[in-house]
Simulated assay, not measured.
Amino acid sequence: MRRRHHFHIDYRGHSVSATVETGLRPVVEVLVDGKETGHATIRDDGPLVVPIELPTDPPTPATVRATSGPGVPRCLLIAEGDLDSHVMAPRLY
Rank of each mutant, 00 (worst) to 15 (best):
T37V: 15
G34P: 04
D44E: 09
V30R: 05
R4L: 12
P73D: 07
K35V: 15
P73K: 00
G23H: 07
G38P: 04
A89P: 02
G69Q: 02
S85P: 02
E21A: 08
K35I: 15
I52N: 00
A62C: 01
A18M: 03
P58N: 11
S68H: 01
T19E: 14
E53P: 00
E53R: 08
L92N: 12
D57P: 01
K35P: 02
R65E: 14
V72K: 06
A79V: 14
R12L: 15
C75G: 10
T60A: 04
T41Y: 09
G38E: 00
T67L: 05
G38V: 00
D10S: 05
D57I: 13
P26D: 11
R4N: 14
T22N: 05
D44V: 04
I9W: 08
T37F: 02
D84S: 10
R2Q: 07
R4F: 15
V87T: 14
V50R: 14
L77F: 01
H39T: 01
E53G: 02
K35T: 15
P59K: 07
V32G: 06
R65G: 05
H39I: 00
V20I: 15
L24D: 09
H14K: 00
D45S: 11
E29L: 09
G13D: 09
V27P: 03
P61A: 08
F7I: 06
T56G: 06
D82E: 06
A89T: 14
L24P: 03
P58D: 09
V49Y: 07
P55Y: 10
V28P: 11
R25V: 10
L54Q: 03
V49G: 07
P55T: 06
P90I: 12
H8R: 13
H8Q: 13
A89E: 15
P26W: 11
A40F: 00
A18Q: 02
V49L: 08
A89D: 15
F7M: 05
S17W: 03
L83D: 12
C75Y: 03
T60E: 10
L92F: 15
P55D: 10
R43L: 15
V27E: 07
P61V: 03
T56I: 04
H5C: 13
P51E: 08
D44R: 11
P51A: 10
A66M: 05
S85L: 07
P61N: 13
M1P: 12
A18I: 01
G46T: 14
I52V: 00
V49M: 07
R3M: 07
H5R: 05
H86K: 14
T37N: 10
I9D: 10
A40Q: 01
P59G: 02
T41R: 12
D45H: 13
E53T: 03
P59I: 04
T22V: 10
L76G: 06
R4W: 13
T56C: 06
V50A: 11
V16T: 02
